[in-house]
Design a protein around this nucleic acid. Structure first.
Lengths: 245, 245
DNA sequence: CGATTATTTGAAATCGCTCAAGTTGGGTGG
DNA sequence: CCACCCAACTTGAGCGATTTCAAATAATCG
């Protein structure tokens, strides 16, 4: 039973909805729950994980800092009534587990299998070299979060979904996008997220996300495949729908 | 003429609205436009500024990093059709001007007079001590942005405005809030932002923000004064309206 | 004090949400 | 290999919160 998320416009009635996010979400079967420390070095150790594994939860002691090597992780926060917001998507190279208070301020759940380097928070504080490397990457994530604030605050549902799909297209739509010349104008992307997760990331409901994908299909911009696959038939047209160009 | 901001749901008709944000917003008269370098030291130099001064704009060469000593700054991004989102509010101690690309990814405008230490980006990169100090503070800002993503993605208009007001109440509503015991349960805060700026920060329209304040007044939770003053008569009740408790 | 801007309020429109089926797809066991 | 089950997704209809558009009121500044 996948958790469902409350919407901002429906706080009263749905707060008691059975399929709501609770503080302790219903455990989701992980296809590879085994979490195996691989090697130990002064810099931390590497950890493998499967799909839908919680690396930490909001409120846990914030003793570790993670550096994602491979895979994808979502960071989310819950409101007391069960509404969920995915506050950041973590990709390879990104850093997470940072907190200004002694406990984590969000939860981290893997989206797909992968691996991360796990650093001790205290060690990071003491190692200038390591601290620098992690901080440098945080700057890029900072910009991504600014961009996401624009999406959440000012974009329509279709623009949000289009923006999300474009995020999954490497090297296009951002700073220094080469445009359609030369390269392909179509690509097959794996979203790696369920509709519900996408909805919680984009500040929408699952139904609205679904309708947006259907609309993109109707317009001939994408073909929806199975297993979270999407064939973007016209990257440029998709890009224009993001509202950013 | 204060710039007006498009809403996500009204892209077609309003894109041509005369009072829209343009890429180059109508210059606002700054009451103290003079920007005076005060002293020079190896760590950078201090700069005073007045109200409604742009420190930099989206697209400018990102050569400087700012450390706010005093005052308040808003960072905002514009969409091509004029929609604006304030992506971060900067207070004393906060750092801004960080960018992952060679140019600034957002604009910085002062909300009230204040001063900042201006660092050369290259100098920051070279000085481990300075870099560490700035990065440490960025971590707190990171958490604040996560919190703001929840607000933008999942909160109702009233919850957003209540959350914003609570942000202006020091030491309450956050981690380790002492509650109503002991201290005052009312406080007079200066918002330091116009309704339009608040709206652009909260992802709402100016009218919705105004209606929310009226609603809070009707419920006896606040008294609205002049000059952006708000008397919060019941901090705890306001806090409950934020949706976070 | 008068002009201009900011804010508030009202009425109508709309986008996205809620609620309720229906459909698809993957996995399982016979 | 097929029937069945369950979860994920899609679709439709109605509703409601917020936006839009319009106008009145309040505040600010010379």
């Amino acid at each position: 039973m996948k958790a469902q998320t409350a919407q901002r416009t429906a706080i009263p009635q749905n707060a008691a909805h059975p399929s709501f996010h609770r503080h302790e979400p219903a455990p989701r079967l992980s296809r590879a729950a085994a979490v195996v420390p691989l090697r130990s070095e002064e810099e931390g150790y590497q950890q493998r994980f499967g799909q839908h594994v919680h690396l930490f939860r909001e409120g846990d002691d914030a003793t570790r800092i993670y550096e994602l090597v491979d895979g994808a992780v979502m960071l989310y926060k819950l409101l007391p009534d069960g509404r969920r917001q995915v506050v950041e998507l973590i990709g390879a190279g990104d850093v997470f587990g940072i907190s200004a208070i002694p406990v984590y301020e969000c939860s981290a759940e893997t989206l797909v299998p992968g691996q991360a380097i796990v650093h001790d928070r205290a060690v990071v504080e003491r190692s200038p070299e390591l601290f620098r490397r992690l901080s440098a990457h945080l700057q890029a994530q900072f910009c991504a979060m600014h961009e996401h604030a624009v999406l959440l605050g000012r974009k329509s549902a279709l623009e949000r979904v289009a923006s999300f799909v474009m995020q999954c297209v490497p090297g296009r739509g951002g700073y220094g996008c080469p445009g359609p010349r030369g390269g392909d104008n179509s690509i097959n992307v794996r979203l790696g997220m369920t509709r519900q997760e996408i909805a919680d990331y984009l500040g929408l409901t699952i139904e609205t996300v679904s309708r947006a994908f259907s609309e993109l299909r109707r317009r001939g911009i994408v073909m929806i495949g199975k297993q979270e696959q999407v064939l973007v038939k016209d990257i440029c047209r998709m890009c224009k729908l993001t509202g950013a160009h």
